[in-house]
């Protein structure tokens, strides 16, 4: 009896591994192997287009410490993440709460706010280059209409990064809204009714009922958003190429420049590993701070 049980269990395990294998092979080929290779490359002088590689030890990493641009780029990436993600999530949450009602035509609004997500990022980038154009762009026209000064946006090293952040918020919010909306649908409505009977106002209902109850989803959205945002490359490539004065250069773009434009694969690998640690650190930080506050329904 126990023998057949053990065999059945072994079969089941075998089956499980068989099912996992394809994705494992895929991950190993396209994720783990490149990571290991980039660690190996980061210890060498490797040049794109040249098969020879030369051992350097830690030289690429000591270069990193002296590289003014690397620190600037790291700061830019952190700035982009730490502004884009919180702003998008607040906007998304407010939108989701507003959309979570049974008014007529709500589906149209939802689609409207989700629409930016569906636009390919290259197309969105090109459109925003036009919107931000200093002399004829609609953004500046709008600013003039309400009496605000016109800005040089993508040509101004102080405003280029905020310009990217604004467009990213526009692009991400709808996506986060959709996820949060799904979570809101699961919040029991009797909680709101009870609160309303006790005379709790909308703001307090949001703070004390909605946010705690969607916090697992919120947490998920923060993690996903962070992962998305440190990977930002397309908008930088299309809209600014990292300029002016490196003010919008971010880690992924700098890695691309170093590896493909400067053919310096060794140093690009060192940068990629720095990015890996940066992301691990960021995710760790989120997990330690916010992760502890997550409230799971039905959990004690």
């Amino acid at each position: 009896m126990s023998k057949t049980f053990a065999r059945a269990r072994r079969n089941e395990m075998f089956l499980a591994y068989a099912f996992l294998l394809p994705s494992l092979v895929f991950l190993a080929t396209f994720t783990y192997w490149p990571i290991l290779r980039s660690i190996w490359f980061s210890l060498h002088d490797v040049m794109l287009g040249d098969p020879e590689i030369y051992w350097l030890g830690l030289e690429n990493y000591t270069r990193l410490l002296d590289d003014r641009l690397f620190w600037k780029v790291l700061g830019n990436t952190a700035f982009y993440t730490l502004t884009t993600i919180p702003i998008s999530i607040v906007v998304a949450l407010l939108l989701a709460v507003a959309m979570d009602s049974k008014l007529r035509g709500m589906a149209i609004y939802r689609s409207a706010f989700f629409y930016p997500v569906m636009i390919p990022s290259v197309a969105a980038g090109m459109v925003w280059v036009f919107l931000y154009a200093p002399s004829y762009g609609p953004v500046n026209e709008a600013l003039t209409t309400v009496g605000l000064p016109r800005l040089d946006w993508l040509y101004d090293s102080d405003w280029a990064m905020p310009a990217l952040v604004i467009m990213s918020v526009w692009k991400y919010s709808g996506y986060f809204m959709l996820i949060l909306l799904a979570a809101l649908k699961l919040v029991p409505s009797d909680l709101y009714e009870a609160a309303r009977l006790d005379g709790v106002n909308a703001w307090h209902r949001l703070i004390h009922i909605t946010i705690p109850l969607v916090s697992p989803t919120l947490y998920f959205v923060i993690i996903i958003g962070t992962l998305h945002s440190y990977q930002v490359f397309d908008y930088v490539y299309i809209m600014t190429q990292g300029g002016p004065a490196d003010s919008t250069n971010v880690l992924t773009f700098y890695i691309y420049q170093t590896g493909f434009q400067y053919q310096d694969i060794g140093y690009a690998s060192a940068l990629a590993n720095a990015l890996l640690f940066f992301v691990l650190g960021l995710i760790g930080l989120v997990a330690v701070t916010l992760g502890r506050k997550v409230h799971y329904l039905g959990e004690r």
Binding site: G243, D246, Y262
Partner: peptide, 21 residues
């Protein structure tokens, strides 16, 4: 050699100077 990086470094230096940094 390394002209591509040289160009970017110079452009950055010019930009930062003109920005007044």
């Amino acid at each position: 050699p390394a002209y591509s990086r040289a160009r970017d470094v110079l452009k950055s230096a010019i930009d930062r100077t003109l920005e007044g940094e």
